[in-house]
């Protein structure tokens, strides 16, 4: 059937809209990159949008020679690695037993975990708990309380459930223990889902800022997200972070902020082309109910 002229018109219209959406989506990012390479006077007169004006890499040099920036950056890397390992291990420890249909009390245990998705203790009881455990100003305050995402755990469980039972039965015949099966059969077969989960958790830990914001008072412990947050928000008091570092800072230039933002998202941007398909497949798996 021939296309009607209305449909042809629609197609041009559609492509235009989608190009516009892409432009709006990417514009803020390119704007920041352009600002990061521009000199402050051009930014202040509102002349920088997509291309740097008054090309300047001096700010990159200054920020990258700021000791505190690297200390905080290194903290983010450490928190991300440690947090991701803890999250992955704990999630596997739950998801694997719960994937076994024969497990007694499986329904109850699943509900026990799922319930925490819909009802949580709230900000202040969490704060009281974490500080009274003595986790304040320590890595544990940010990697432990949020270690498990029940949603991710359910995705893993669904994946484990779909591993053919026969493989495990054969291993039992050969005298493997549960742990042997888990390490020799299940985990090697689950590499795709482990990779996806690792990325889910790693990005979440990399981007996390609020726990550090309320539990940390020592600059040396801040992740880079707090370094950036204090720049953006300038003088404003917070329970932990904001109060100490940024109070006496005056207006920080757009150029400096832009450089910090670019440096913060750089690792994510570098891996983004390779990881986004894992994320998409993770979301798809999540939609299949187990």
């Amino acid at each position: 059937m021939k296309e009607t002229w209305q449909y042809k018109l629609f197609k041009y219209f559609n492509v235009t809209i989608l190009i516009f959406i892409v432009f709006v989506t990417l514009f803020p990012f390119f704007n920041i990159v352009a600002q990061s390479f521009s000199s402050e006077s051009y930014i202040n007169s509102g002349q920088v949008s997509l291309w740097p004006k008054g090309f300047n890499v001096e700010t990159y040099r200054v920020i990258m020679s700021d000791n505190m920036f690297w200390v905080n950056y290194k903290n983010t890397v450490v928190y991300t690695v440690v947090g991701t390992v803890i999250s992955l291990v704990l999630s596997t420890m739950i998801a694997y037993p719960l994937s076994k249909k024969r497990l007694k009390g499986r329904r109850f245990l699943t509900l026990f975990f799922v319930f925490t998705m819909f009802f949580n203790g709230g900000l202040i009881p969490n704060y009281v708990l974490v500080t009274s455990l003595g986790f304040g100003n320590s890595i544990w305050a940010i990697v432990i309380p949020n270690a498990i995402s029940v949603f991710n755990m359910l995705i893993m469980r669904t994946f484990f459930q779909n591993i053919p039972e026969e493989l495990e039965e054969a291993a039992i015949m050969d005298g493997s223990s549960t742990f042997g099966i888990l390490f020799k059969i299940v985990l090697p077969l689950s590499k795709p889902i482990l990779a996806t989960m690792m990325l889910f958790y790693a990005v979440a830990h990399w981007n996390s800022w609020f726990p550090a914001f309320i539990f940390f008072t020592e600059k040396e412990l801040f992740p880079v997200s707090i370094y950036l947050r204090n720049m953006i928000k300038g003088a404003e008091t917070a329970v932990g972070a904001g109060a100490t570092s940024a109070d006496n800072m005056v207006q920080i230039s757009s150029n400096i902020k832009s450089v910090t933002m670019v440096l913060t998202v750089l690792p994510i941007l570098m891996v983004y082309p390779y990881i986004q398909k894992y994320f998409v497949s993770g979301v798809m798996l999540g939609s299949v109910k187990g």
């Binding site: 989506t25 803020p28 990012f29 990399w206 997200s225 947050r229 953006i232 994510i268 986004q276």
Partner: peptide, 23 residues
């Protein structure tokens, strides 16, 4: 178009806020 549209989802909320303030 799809790949571009996912990108903001991966940005830290702190960076997003920073971009909003700048723009």
């Amino acid at each position: 178009v799809q790949t571009a549209s996912y990108l903001p989802h991966f940005f830290s909320i702190v960076v997003v806020a920073g971009m909003v303030f700048e723009i």
